[in-house]
């Protein structure tokens, strides 16, 4: 009982509910469709994202040369260093203040809500996917899971410092239900679904 931490924890221990029942086993929620790719593309488009099917990194480069972004482009993917500069080492996040397009890699996508799981390892600098005006995520087309239940199961035991699901561009409608894209993050989000 020396410090306040011990006092708080002792009190919490003493006041534990006596009538607690074990949590029920809900099992895994089954997928609603086997057409994961169709569902993912439909949902991501519906929530304001763009989807591009590509066969390889060269196709991404071609696409970006045909639809150029007017400004600085950074990427964490070495295969795209020919078109975008590498994201600088995590020292000063302000160095990314004027980034127009950030291209990062995604771990896997979730078909039911169009979300893509990305971790620090995918973009080096935590601020990278949020500070950019436009965001592009490269996702292997076979890395899709049906729903969030299965997504979280997939994350069990994974070691990552910071990870986040990104679903489409930044959206907010909390002021008078008026939808604003890009108030807090990227104004557009493109998923490059790449064949293996």
């Amino acid at each position: 009982m020396s410090n306040s931490r011990d006092q708080i924890l002792a009190k919490v221990r003493a006041n534990q509910p006596q009538d607690e029942r074990p949590l029920p086993d809900l099992g895994l929620f089954p997928a609603r469709t086997t057409e994961l790719l169709d569902q993912f593309m439909t949902i991501l488009t519906l929530i304001g994202g763009k989807v591009q099917r590509v066969s390889n990194y060269a196709a991404i480069e071609t696409h970006l040369r045909e639809h150029p972004y007017p400004g600085r482009m950074v990427t964490s993917i070495p295969a795209l260093f020919s078109i975008a500069e590498p994201i600088p080492a995590p020292s000063d996040p302000h160095a990314l203040a004027n980034v127009e397009l950030a291209i990062i890699s995604g771990e896997f996508g979730v078909a039911e809500n169009g979300a893509i799981w990305v971790t620090e390892a995918n973009f080096g600098q935590r601020v990278a996917p949020f500070i950019c005006q436009h965001l592009a995520v490269v996702l292997p087309v076979d890395q899709l899971c049906p729903n969030m239940h299965q997504a979280y199961q997939r994350l069990q035991g994974k070691d990552y410092g910071f990870g986040v699901f990104i679903a489409g561009p930044s959206k907010t409608a909390d002021i008078e239900q008026s939808l604003v894209l890009g108030a807090h993050g990227a104004r557009t989000m493109t998923a490059f679904l790449m064949d293996n």
Partner: peptide
């Protein structure tokens, strides 16, 4: 971030007591 520290501050504010009610 590698090598960084994470500090957690416990704020009781009557919560441990309410747990007992």
């Amino acid at each position: 971030m590698q090598g960084a520290q994470l500090h957690i501050v416990l704020v009781d504010n009557g919560r441990s007591q309410q747990l007992g009610r």
